[in-house]
Design a protein around this nucleic acid. Sequence first.
DNA 1: AATTCTTCGTTT
DNA 2: AACGAAGAATTC
Length: 727
Amino acid sequence: METAPVTVPVLLPLALPAPYDYLVPDGARVEPGQFVVVPLGPVHYIAAVWRRPEGEEPPKIARKKLREIVEILDDVPKLPTVSLDFADWVSNYTLTSPGMVLRMMMSARSAFEPPAPRYGVRLSGPPPERMTPARARVLEAAKNGLSWVKSSLAEAAGVSPSVIDGLVDAGTLVAEPLPDWHAMPLDLARKRATLNPEQTEAATELLKHTGGGFAVSLLDGVTGSGKTEVYFEAIAQCLERGQQALVLLPEIALTGQFLARCEERFGARPAEWHSGVSPSMRGRVWRAVAENKAKLVAGARSALFLPFPDLGLIVVDEEHDQAYKQEDRVAYQARDMAVVRGHLGHCPVVLSSATPSIESLVNADQGRYRHIRLGTRYKAASLPAIQTVDMRKNPPERRHWLSPVLIEEMAATLERGEQVLLFLNRRGYAPVTLCRKCGFRFECPNCSAWLVEHRFRHRLECHHCGKFMPIPHECPSCGAEESLVACGPGVERIAEEVAEHFPEARRVLLSSDLTPSISELRETLREIEEREVDIIIGTQLVAKGHHFPGLALVGVVDADLGLAQGDPRAAERTFQLLSQVTGRAGRDAIKGRGLIQTYMPEHPVIAALVAGDRDTFLDREIAARRDAGLPPFGRLAAILVTAGSREAAEAYAREVARAAPEAEKIQVLGPAEAPLSVIRGRYRFRLLVKATREADLQTYLRVWLAQAPKAKGDIRLTVDIDPYSFL
DNA sequence: AATTCTTCGTTT
DNA sequence: AACGAAGAATTC
């Protein structure tokens, strides 16, 4: 009798609904999590051996369809079991195919290739016969006798890499293989004594919940209260146990300052994981994490999908930050997924913020999370004094946006030799450009949005699709010359106005489109920290996770900007952003001030900021959410239908809505045309699914979408669980 | 994601 | 009938 062939499920990093079965080569053994090469149709893919759900019968596919695993990648570390659990969970929760989640977990191509041996150079021979200034600088830089990566030695000495090659040829430097991962020489006791009494108390409380096993702690303390030092204690505790620790930060907060603080506390830099890390470094970090060699990782949200085999702590810093919500491809909320990852891996999670999200506060109130407060005691002393500038009473000059009150305060601050930050959450020079003669406005041809003037780059840009065009001299509609006017302010225009008032001051403009690379941003932030700058003008980039010791005054140019729309999270978001940015002022020795320009000083968000009364404001927001059955008291999902034609998108969205099954605890609203009705030439309609907390939203959606008519032609349907954006 | 299969409309 | 392009279906 013929024995049944040995097959295993293999998950491919593609948008397929489930793993496929493959034959295991004769005599070979494979385990779940191992990486293999399998054929699919005519091509080969790297994929991961998955596992069969408990009790499920193996192959139900025709034997002759089965194909064999081509190669077992023994040199690639396997995915730990918890990563498989996590991928399945995320796939199930977000309604995306498991393969797409695996793809996120594999987003380090070079980890799957044999690691290229790396060579370092070390001082070992006599000085070269021919000495040059460049060579001398290299010898000076390398005199510690340690092994250097060639490029970093060249950089440290300020020479080109060929100088190093020359010295290797001369026998002065010797090349030798470097270890694939430099183990971090941890020094965990280093800085323990520097905590103040309040931090010590918070740390003691926190450590009770981070000793091992799943528990979520919300570390809630005003800006400048020293939350980082407190959670560093939990990291030290985790590393002492020999386990791995992960710190998630909003990408833009992964600054040199943060890494330096880690280094100061632990004696070594953490492994970094964010979009600025080079492909080869990504591969090395991925492997080092999988091999349990990288013990401390600081990363952006995608670091959550690294293959940690022994994760002992996850910290989500600035947990309220919108950057944790990924909207494209797999839509997920990294803060929430961090809690899930902690649960699956039996490891503690710390959420840290000065302005926690309503979700986390409610979870803390209801006892699901520990609530650890920090800084409340010194609130009056440490928080900047915040005042409004009523723009109705103190209007700026015509075609200007800074009120006399703010300008005067800026002058006084500069006089004292202290720094000023002006915040406006709007990139570019002017949000709308129009023709004075005929009223024509520049609109994006692909999106329902105005083109934003970017004066530095001499062009009009669409902030939704990236379309840009040079600024014309005449109106494209009526042909009038010199008739185009920029309407409203962007940061570039504020920078111009500042230059008018303070021509002598050293100014810097920080905006994501002007400082595209992380390293450039880090350099600018360092200059500000070193007080080589007097006035900083910036978008929300400046609000995130960096502290400027010399900063005394923060001016919010337009506080009303985020409050207008009918977005249920607008008030919360504006409050978080403005407290974050005003919280930049006055740390260390300097007493800080915040001046908020507004046309509605009586608005609850503004009033709460001025009174420093977060809790009353949030209690009202929480009550409003409860009454409306919105998250976290209810659950939401958004379904977005897009198509090249308005009619097709709308018709299909209606068909889908009509197919929605009746359910007691679930309500389907819409379709409605999205507020941004066209992006990249695609028309958008939205459905909102509103459910109670108890409802099984995912199962409902799965059943619904399976029986709904399929999207044909260029129509696309995407599901966003727990949506944050309502555009 | 990449390839093959189907369909439909056009050309000779 | 033959050809080609565009869309749908398939891949273990």
